[in-house]
Computed example of a mutant assay.
Amino acid sequence: MKNLKKIDLFNFNLEIGKVRPYIPLYFETFGQPVGSAPVVLVNHALTGNSTITGENGWWNDLIGENKTINTNDFTVIAFNIPGNGYDNVFGNLISDYKDFTILDVARIFWEGLFHLNIDELFTVIGGSLGGAIAWEMAAQHPTKIKNLIPIATDWKATDWVIANVLIQDKILNNSDDPIADARLHAMLLYRTPQSINQRFKRKQNNVFEVENWLTNHGSKLKNRFRLSSYKLMNHLLKTNDITKNRKDFVTVASQIQANIHIVSVDTDYFFIAEENRETYQNLKKIKENVFYHEIQSIHGHDAFLIEFNQLATFLSPIFNTQNTHKYVNA
């Protein structure tokens, strides 16, 4: 059962110059009380939310008691991106979704942390959209994070990502069944032809099984997600760029003191591994504490939600408390 807490933010200045009079920031905490243990911030992906572990937790395989991110040892926090609708308060949805950027979301998350008297983070981790927010958080406060773990993501939106965001936006604004139809397109970005062909093998019972699978994904998302939320989360994906109004990537990244663990998926057709390998090679020239891990999977982008054993292998040394120096929040 979700146990949402709320932080009230007032007169928040958006990147585009507008002022948002009020933003409610909902979140959940897991494990140790705030202020008593190192803090791990988990950023959710496009259709995700703050329930990362426990009942209906979407990352139960990695987070919990005696798991890779052990809630016996850490305070784990997850914010809901404002407007994702998880609080079920209709008035908190955001209709002017193009006013917001990932830079705004990262600042909102930092404001939430400062409200909780958290000035440093042991780790910021997130997949896909959540990982992009993690990159921006590190760019905004380069000395306040010990471990930065962006998974299946990038520090910038490539032309390929921007193009697909446009297609999603067109579907969401023009389809008679926008959430379901947009989800059908998105699922083909999140998986691979090999994964789908291997799973369904052209089987059919009146209709092809792959068609049923896609239709069910669309229906399930429509039942739990709001249209305005989908529009906002999709739009955020194209606003990711830690060099915007800053200097070049190497200069910006050189200020980030965190250990950077880049995790990509070899078959990711959305945030492609080649981009992450290039990022790693550029970072190696200026940082010693940068590491690259690659999930090997047939499943594409969604492998970060499927290949838990590989992910746990990469993450376990980071979260092994025997290797963790004593850490106290400022």
Rank of each mutant, 00 (worst) to 15 (best):
Asp87Ile: 03
Thr279Arg: 05
Asn72Ala: 08
Thr279Asn: 09
Ser297Gln: 03
Ile102Phe: 00
Trp213Val: 06
Val39Lys: 00
Gly112Ser: 12
Ser297Ile: 02
Pro150Arg: 00
Glu288Leu: 07
Phe12Gln: 09
Val76Ser: 07
Ala134Lys: 02
Phe74Tyr: 14
Val165Met: 15
Ser175Asp: 11
Asn234Phe: 05
Asn329Thr: 12
Leu14Asn: 01
Asn49Phe: 00
Lys326Cys: 13
Lys244Gly: 00
Phe27Glu: 14
Gly127Ser: 12
Asn11Leu: 09
Lys238Pro: 02
Gly130Pro: 10
Asn56Tyr: 08
Leu4Lys: 10
Gln322Tyr: 07
Thr143Pro: 11
Val161Arg: 00
Leu214Met: 14
Phe314Trp: 08
Leu315Cys: 06
Asp176His: 06
Gly112Leu: 08
Trp110Glu: 13
Tyr97Gly: 03
Leu311Lys: 04
Ala273Val: 02
Lys201Ile: 09
Leu121Pro: 01
Asp119Cys: 12
Asn173Val: 07
Met1Cys: 06
Leu311Ala: 09
Leu9Met: 07
Gly48Leu: 05
Thr71Ser: 10
Thr29Cys: 13
Asp181Val: 07
Met1Phe: 15
Thr143Cys: 11
Arg224Gln: 13
Asn88Asp: 07
Thr279Cys: 09
His235Ala: 04
Lys287Phe: 04
Pro33Gln: 00
Asn72Gln: 12
Leu113Phe: 00
Val250Asp: 11
Thr239Phe: 05
Asn92Met: 08
Phe27Val: 11
Leu189Phe: 04
Arg183His: 13
Asn289Ala: 10
Ser195Val: 11
Gly126Arg: 00
Ala258Gln: 12
Glu28Met: 13
Thr243Val: 08
Lys222Asn: 07
Phe249Arg: 04
Tyr26Cys: 13
Val161His: 02
Leu221Met: 08
Leu9Arg: 03
Ile162Pro: 08
Asp104Tyr: 04
Phe270Ser: 00
Gly131Trp: 00
Leu113Pro: 03
Pro150Met: 04
Tyr269Asn: 08
Pro33Ile: 07
Gly126Met: 03
Thr192Ala: 14
His44Tyr: 03
Thr192Asn: 09
Leu236Asn: 02
Val207Asp: 15
Ile295Tyr: 10
Ala312Gln: 10
Arg224Pro: 12
Ile23Leu: 06
His261Ser: 14
Asn234Arg: 04
Leu188Pro: 06
Ile102Gln: 00
Thr75Gln: 01
Asn70Gln: 10
Lys170His: 14
Leu129Ala: 07
Pro24Asn: 08
Val165Gly: 09
Ala138Trp: 01
Ala258Gly: 11
Tyr280Phe: 13
Met1Asp: 07
Gly85Ser: 09
Asp181Tyr: 05
Gly300Val: 02
His217Glu: 14
Glu211Cys: 08
Lys144Pro: 04
Gln140Ile: 05
Thr158Arg: 07
Ile272Gln: 09
Asn60Arg: 05
Thr75Asn: 02
Gly31Val: 02
Ile102Arg: 01
Gly300Arg: 01
Val207Phe: 02
Asn84Thr: 10
